[in-house]
Design a protein around this nucleic acid. Structure first.
Length: 357
DNA sequence: AACGCGTGGTG
DNA sequence: TCACCAAGCGT
């Protein structure tokens, strides 16, 4: 058996990273104790959830999913709606749709076992170059180095890569691979990720605590924080719209969004288009026709929300509908008391909370 | 090859 | 405050 100490005796940055990792590795819900084999299902589930999402946000979702669906086969037997309900609030909902599709594929086409090669994993829905390499290395010990945002940052600093992202990606991938030791590929990758998350942070990196600071070109230059080089990104224009909350006794009127695109497949209250140049009258004119509902009342204030590519402000209207009022075509009544379990994105939770306030 | 795609934390 | 960003992927 090769241990970190053995690697350390041979010297080099890969070994130094593993020595550091064995002492400082984070304890995470999806990470087994040191030396214990990882469960491919747990690795895959966590990697999908962690895409562009913080460890803190993922924690409770990972625990919920593992408790309800302990295996990929169990998850593959769940309905997409149930998966979306459990995913609600975590964002990037195409991940949930692909997660379900992937579980079905693994259960039905691979006998409930994940492919153990990078290429095999890469073919699964929602599994791209990073995730395929991460699962291959962490769950199956394959000699490959996944490159995520953390590792991009660590490597771009270590070598002071001047090229701007994403042009620098191939070079960084190449350099990252040199940090793989002769064994423990998964730990090598996780060491770099932990280093990026705790020491080599985007702002104010703690270089004094870094196990490889002597090797770091950016550290020597004193401008580690300026890596990786990136072009400034443009912020989207504010969009405006209206949301309509119809109350019938202890229920509220809901509908489902189309399966693809923004908040695809998720549940919402009826609402208008969201346009950058739309006045209140135009938005209000898109209220649903609910037979028997009394007049709309505009709630004071607005609900503000920020998506990746644009900020949004919604005006909220409420109306009361008499008992027995029929839901318009494609809509349904749901009890307010059980909304917590619905596939409502946080934007819609804000809207409903504002309406009931 | 850019762009669309959520949400919450941070300096 | 607000721009940035977090274990990216699909198109």
């Amino acid at each position: 058996m090769i241990t970190a100490d053995d690697d350390g005796a041979s010297g080099g940055r890969p070994a130094a990273l593993l020595v550091w990792y064995d002492r400082h590795r984070r304890v995470l819900p999806w990470r087994p104790p040191a030396g214990v084999a990882a469960d491919p299902y747990a690795v895959w589930l966590s990697e999908i959830m962690l895409q562009q999402t913080t460890v803190r946000a993922v924690g409770p979702y990972f625990e919920k999913f593992m408790a309800r669906w302990p295996s990929v086969t169990a998850l593959g037997q769940a309905s997409l709606d149930d998966v979306l309900r459990m995913w609600a609030g975590l964002g990037y909902y195409s991940r949930a749709r692909n997660l379900h599709a992937c579980a079905v594929a693994v259960a039905t086409q691979h006998g409930g076992r994940f492919p153990d090669t990078e290429d095999g994993l890469r073919a699964l829905p929602g599994v791209g170059p990073y995730t395929a390499a991460a699962i291959a290395a962490i769950a199956f010990g394959r000699q490959t180095m996944p490159v995520d945002g953390n590792i991009e940052r660590v490597v771009s600093r270590l070598y002071a890569v001047e090229d701007e992202m994403p042009k620098a990606k191939p070079r960084i991938q190449e350099l990252a691979r040199t940090l793989l030791g002769p064994s423990r590929a998964g730990d090598s990758a996780q060491a770099l990720m932990d280093l990026g998350a705790t020491i080599c942070t985007p702002k104010k990196p703690a270089c004094a605590l870094c196990p490889i600071d002597d090797d770091c070109a950016a550290r020597r230059r004193g401008d580690a924080e300026t890596f990786p080089r990136k072009a400034p990104k443009k912020t989207g224009a504010l969009r405006r719209g209206a949301a309509f909350v119809v109350i019938r006794g202890d229920q509220v009127l809901l509908r489902s969004r189309v399966a693809k695109g923004l908040l695809g497949g998720m549940t919402e209250v009826p609402n208008s288009d969201w346009l950058s140049d739309q006045d209140d009258a135009a938005a209000r004119a898109q209220a649903p026709a609910v037979t028997g509902a009394t007049r709309w009342h505009r709630k004071a204030g607005v609900v503000s929300h920020v998506f990746t590519h644009f900020p949004l402000e919604l005006v909220v209207y409420t109306a009361q509908a008499p008992a027995g009022t029929h839901a318009p075509k494609g809509m349904r009544w749901e009890k307010i008391a059980t909304l917590a379990g619905e596939a409502l994105p946080n934007l819609m939770r804000k809207v409903i909370a504002h309406a009931l306030d």
